[in-house]
Design a protein around this nucleic acid. Structure first.
Lengths: 191, 191
DNA sequence: ACTCCAATCGACAGTCACTATCAGTTGATA
DNA sequence: TATCAACTGATAGTGACTGTCGATTGGAGT
């Protein structure tokens, strides 16, 4: 099903606002940029920014992954290798500039705010908690675990990987994100 | 070293404000209580509430554990059984009314806000992240792990246990918190 | 006790993220 | 093309949080 004009405009506008907001954040710092400034620079009203992103932090966190519905999510998740799936999702933040994204992916530009901007960090955790809730039922089904057990395992997995991403962020040490995540898997397996 | 009058007053005032705030939250809901209302009911100025707790969420989250310095923390942590230590810390939320606390501990009354009030939940995660950062170095020393590995393991542990606490909260099923945490340890060991 | 200083307090005036509402406009559908 | 639903921008809030400043109070030395 092809997306209507309405949805295409919406997606384009969101990417546009997100890019402009990141430009301003990088330049002047997250705290020193008002939502009003972003709206002005993007030539939309503040109302629109809030309608699209909900919160100021949402501008940084918004991600195509958010809009995945259950069917699409199920397609992304590999039941036989859940750890690998989580790893693959996190690994999307790998910077790889190409002809489509000459300056590297927006995803990569967003990472530093996850860890360095306290309010964004708090919201990141909320996002992870949502991921845990979506992954747990699938894990329960495939791993013959109780709901409780699945949630605990899912939490440990998701937050463990997020921690790995943070460690990579603080000290890349020449490793790629994928490599750092592979190392993390080792730790999680020997928990 | 005995605490001076100044510190004793401070602690007493904080407990007083926290108790009154919880009364109001329980009665009218977190969102429907203004910091101004709490200040008024506790007969202090709003300035004082902010000085003590920093944020509205801080009123719920503030805990004696926050004020533990590194030496005291090291005394609480059992290096030979870190999982057990985390478990012990979380288990403090066990409700046990006694002659000192006829209505059950304040800790127990605070739990529901950790999970049910979104903004408090976000702040809870921040608190957990701080715990991770304090535990990781100790874990690194005792477990012969790199800094990175220690952080990942610490994250999985702390957030795993928090998830266990949440699961217990949502479905106590007659189990005590301690029992629920013991079950969680099993899951984490077989991650 | 008395004094002096630093820490604390209350009061006041902001700032800004976020919400609610509503009239005007635009995309989708028949 | 007409109709309707969804979207947009403008406006007027609310309330958490900050900075500052004069007044008060506990603590340490005399």
């Amino acid at each position: 099903m092809a997306l209507g004009l309405r949805d295409r405009k919406r997606r384009t506008a969101m990417r546009h606002i997100q890019r402009i907001a990141l430009d301003l954040f990088d330049e002047r710092g997250f705290q020193n940029v008002l939502v009003e400034n972003i709206a002005e620079a993007a030539e939309v009203s503040p109302s629109t920014v809030y309608r699209y992103f909900g919160t100021k932090e949402g501008i940084v966190l918004a991600d195509d992954f958010d809009t995945l519905n259950e069917a699409e999510l199920a397609a992304v998740i590999d039941v036989t290798d859940l750890a690998g799936t989580v790893r693959a999702i996190v690994a999307r933040f790998e910077p790889k500039p190409d002809q489509h994204n000459p300056e590297g992916s927006l995803a990569h530009r967003r990472i530093r705010y996850f860890f360095d901007e306290p309010s964004v960090r708090r919201s990141s955790y909320e996002m992870l908690a949502n991921a845990v809730d979506r992954i747990a039922p699938i894990l329960a089904r495939s791993g013959r675990l109780t709901t409780t057990e699945a949630h605990i395992k899912s939490s440990a997995l998701v937050f463990g990987y997020f921690s790995a991403l943070e460690q990579w962020h603080r000290n890349p040490a020449g490793r790629s994100i994928s490599r750092a995540l592979d190392d993390a898997l080792g730790v999680l397996n020997r928990l």
